[in-house]
Nucleic acid binder design. Structure first.
Lengths: 141, 141
DNA sequence: AAATAAACGCAATAACGTTGCAATGATTTT
DNA sequence: AAAATCATTGCAACGTTATTGCGTTTATTT
């Protein structure tokens, strides 16, 4: 199972025209294996002892992956970025996020059941919507 | 005009059961005079030379005002809090925010034309929605 | 005017993220 | 297969925003 993810990650990276380094592959594997959006720190903790990356390297790898649209960053009110692999469903489509106000878990919700644009004042131009629903997750409620 | 805001601010603070200090009054006046949500730094810059507050004091005053529901904090993807006075319209109602991707200006949009709750996975409990529309403001587009 | 407790200012600290630069290593070229 | 090349990495230092502790000041009450 994990090997499959690993190969999958490597291929995705190569197809994006970047170097398939151990770190990038591992990071993308971790994100592909994860249901929820996780922080820089959480990714660090999931790295095996045998492959501890420098904080900066991790930041840069994440930035690169996001630039290649293999993952996306999620804003949060705790001023910490969370990262999530782009499933096909999400890659070309906007979607909402859910954040548990107790355990801070973040998951992606399915696509937006609202209009893709939004009524704005005159002269304003719409680009995108960022929507986070807050509440309690199944474990915390 | 400004004096009116000043008195208004002072009254709001007293009604909330707090000490009407020069700093708090001034800060709330500034926020009441502002159309958009502004940052800690921007508030600092709008303070008169004759009343420069310590950064920490400003943070604490803002926190206090938010706790009393006189203002509210707005999350943003640049990891900077923005603050906005609670008009009656907004105080008891959720609303969306707009952020210009070029000049970083943030304004409050009118109340949400979407359902107040949101379809969540089984076991999850809804609390609130946080919605930011991004695009270009009238000046930047 | 004195008492009191809330607010303030200063200094230090925390957390997250970024930048510059020399060293390493994945790919390509020979 | 070895050398060349340039993207990527690791380290150290730095930047920004925000928070905490504590002694001092000040708005309000007595």
């Amino acid at each position: 199972m994990f090997i499959k993810l690993h190969r999958n990650a490597e291929e995705l990276i190569r197809l994006s025209g970047g170097r398939a380094t151990v770190g990038r592959i591992r990071i993308l594997s971790i994100l592909l294996a994860e249901q929820q959006a996780i922080t820089h720190r959480e990714i660090e903790q999931r790295l095996p002892q045998t492959l501890q990356l420098d904080r900066v390297t991790l930041y840069r790898a994440l930035e690169w992956l996001a630039g290649k649209n293999l993952i996306h960053k999620v804003t949060s009110d705790d001023r910490v970025w969370r990262y999530h692999a782009n499933r096909e469903l999400h890659s070309h489509q906007q979607h909402a996020h859910f954040k548990c106000t107790r355990c801070a878990q973040v998951i992606c919700l399915s696509d937006l059941p609202i209009e893709r644009s939004w009524p704005l004042p005159i002269g304003y131009r719409f680009q995108e919507i960022e929507l986070t629903v807050k509440g309690l997750c199944a474990d915390c409620s």
